[in-house]
């Protein structure tokens, strides 16, 4: 094996982080996407912009503010301390929370697009067939938006795997706690261990390529999520 134990530990930690974040983001992002797709409120613009902010912000900016907020004097930090949870920075939980913000748009936007392209009619059809609101959501919206959910999960997972700036700001470099693959690669390069850096980086390139390949083939096969035309 060309990967050291600490490399493997970093990979395991990264997968664990990305899995937890993806699951939480699907749960959090779905209602946000639903609201953004359906609302006629003037708040749609501001909320949409807020969700998309991590797309354009340098990760260090995001990490910096989260560090302040979760720090001993920040509002979140005060809260977690008063609840007896201690401080979140430089812990796995802190990294999860930071990643939630960082990857939010990559999950919300594909789901929102899928919801928007479904439109009102399938919901109205389901209502005339006796389906109540929750029933309509789970028996009509979710299956029709499935390609959107798949794309969201893959992009959320992959983007969390690839984060670096936020991790450095909020997570530091603690083995088995916050040392993810991207940080590990950085360490290898700093220590001039180019062979190790190559192996890990190559694995990341392959992983990223496969992820995008899956996303594109899923979306390609179900062209434009196939909601167009006269069918719902």
């Amino acid at each position: 094996m060309f990967l050291s134990d600490s490399d493997l530990a970093a990979i395991v930690l990264t997968i664990k982080l990305a899995t937890v974040v993806t699951v939480l983001l699907i749960l959090i992002g779905t209602p946000i996407a639903w609201w953004l797709a359906r609302t006629k409120s003037w708040l749609k613009g501001p909320v949409g912009a807020l969700v998309a902010l991590p797309l354009v912000l340098p990760p260090t900016v995001l990490g910096f503010y989260l560090l302040i907020a979760m720090g001993p004097n920040g509002p979140v930090g005060s809260l977690t301390q008063s609840l007896g949870l201690g401080l979140l920075p430089f812990t796995f939980a802190g990294l999860v929370i930071a990643s939630l913000f960082y990857s939010l748009p990559f999950v919300v936007q594909p789901i929102q697009n899928a919801f928007e392209s479904i439109g009102d009619q399938p919901l109205e059809v389901a209502a005339t067939l006796g389906a109540g609101p929750w029933d309509r959501f789970f028996s009509v919206v979710v299956p029709l938006a499935k390609p959107g959910f798949i794309a969201a999960a893959i992009l959320g997972f992959a983007h969390t795997v690839g984060e670096f700036g936020v991790v450095l700001m909020i997570g530091g470099n603690i083995p088995d706690e916050t040392r993810v693959v991207s940080v590990q690669i950085y360490d290898h390069v700093e220590a001039l261990q180019y062979t190790q850096a190559h192996w890990l980086s190559g694995a990341m390139v392959l992983f990223s390529f496969l992820v995008l390949l899956i996303v594109y083939s899923v979306n390609g096969r179900r062209s434009a999520f196939r909601f167009g035309g006269s069918d719902v």
């Binding site: 009619q121 399938p122 059809v125 389901a126 209502a127 005339t128 067939l129 006796g130 389906a131 109540g132 029933d135 309509r136 009509v140 029709l144 196939r226 909601f227 006269s230 069918d231 719902v232």
Partner: peptide, 16 residues
């Protein structure tokens, strides 16, 4: 969903 109706839309609106 509580009204006992059958609704036929202009376009068939079958669930794909």
């Amino acid at each position: 969903h509580k009204r006992s109706i059958g609704y036929v839309f202009q376009e068939s609106a079958l669930f794909s």
